[in-house]
Simulated scan of single mutants.
Amino acid sequence: MTASLTLVIVAAVLFGSGIAVMLERSLTRVLIGFLLVGNGVNLFMFTMGGEPGLAPILVDGVDPAELSDPLPQAFILTAIVINLGITAFMLALIYRSWWLAQLGEAGDLIGDEDEIAEDAEEAADLIRSSAEDERAIQEVLDASDEDGGRA
């Protein structure tokens, strides 16, 4: 197995620059660093996969030594999916931190007092309406008891 020196150097530069950028305090730079490290690792796994060969399907007349190794390709696909999931999570963290920074000292409490008062009024209305419903049902039951069930 021989690996291209150029690809190994590019993978090392991506990995090193990604680590350097990840050491910053900004979440955006941490995300960019994470993406660089992920791409560097994928490129490194690609170069370690060896020389390209035939498709890894065994048929009659094919020498197994001429086949390419499918395992690094599976690792790279798995790493891409994991990288995408962590990137989505980091983007959600970045958005949430930006949102909280825009709100200032009040944080998430802005507008909650009005909503609590509205919820209390709705609950009181529901209690009143259920009490009226129970009263109406009881009147119907009392009226049917007075009639002796003949109505």
Rank of each mutant, 00 (worst) to 15 (best):
R96L: 14
R128F: 08
G49V: 02
A131G: 05
G53S: 03
A74C: 03
D125G: 09
I94H: 03
E134D: 13
P64Y: 06
T78C: 01
L109V: 08
L67H: 01
T87L: 10
V81P: 01
S130A: 15
I127M: 09
E105C: 00
A92Q: 06
Y95L: 15
S129I: 09
P56V: 01
A92N: 06
A101T: 12
I137G: 08
D63Q: 02
R96D: 02
L109I: 08
L71A: 12
G61I: 06
F44S: 08
V62S: 04
L109N: 13
A65D: 04
V41I: 14
G40A: 02
A92F: 14
I86G: 03
L54V: 01
E51F: 10
E66M: 11
N42G: 02
F44I: 03
N42W: 00
R135Q: 12
D119N: 11
F75K: 01
D63N: 14
D133H: 07
A120E: 11
L58F: 07
L35H: 03
G40W: 01
M48G: 08
L103D: 05
D125V: 08
E121V: 04
Q73E: 04
N42T: 06
D60S: 11
T47N: 05
M90I: 13
G85L: 15
M90N: 05
V62I: 15
Q102E: 11
M90K: 00
L67E: 02
M45R: 00
G111K: 12
S129T: 12
G53R: 03
R96P: 03
A120Q: 10
D133M: 15
W98H: 09
Y95R: 12
I86L: 15
D114R: 13
G85P: 01
L91S: 05
G53E: 02
D60L: 11
A55R: 01
I116F: 10
Y95S: 09
L100K: 11
E132C: 12
A131Q: 14
D133L: 15
L35T: 07
D69Q: 07
V37F: 07
M48D: 01
F89A: 14
L54S: 06
E118D: 09
E113D: 12
L58G: 02
I57K: 04
I82N: 02
G104Q: 08
A74H: 05
P64L: 10
G40Y: 01
I116K: 05
L103S: 09
D114G: 14
P72T: 02
I86V: 15
R96I: 06
A120W: 04
A65T: 14
V37K: 04
E122N: 08
R135V: 08
E113I: 12
D69I: 01
L58T: 05
A79F: 07
A55L: 01
L43G: 02
G38E: 06
N42A: 12
L71P: 00
G104C: 10
Q73M: 07
G53H: 03
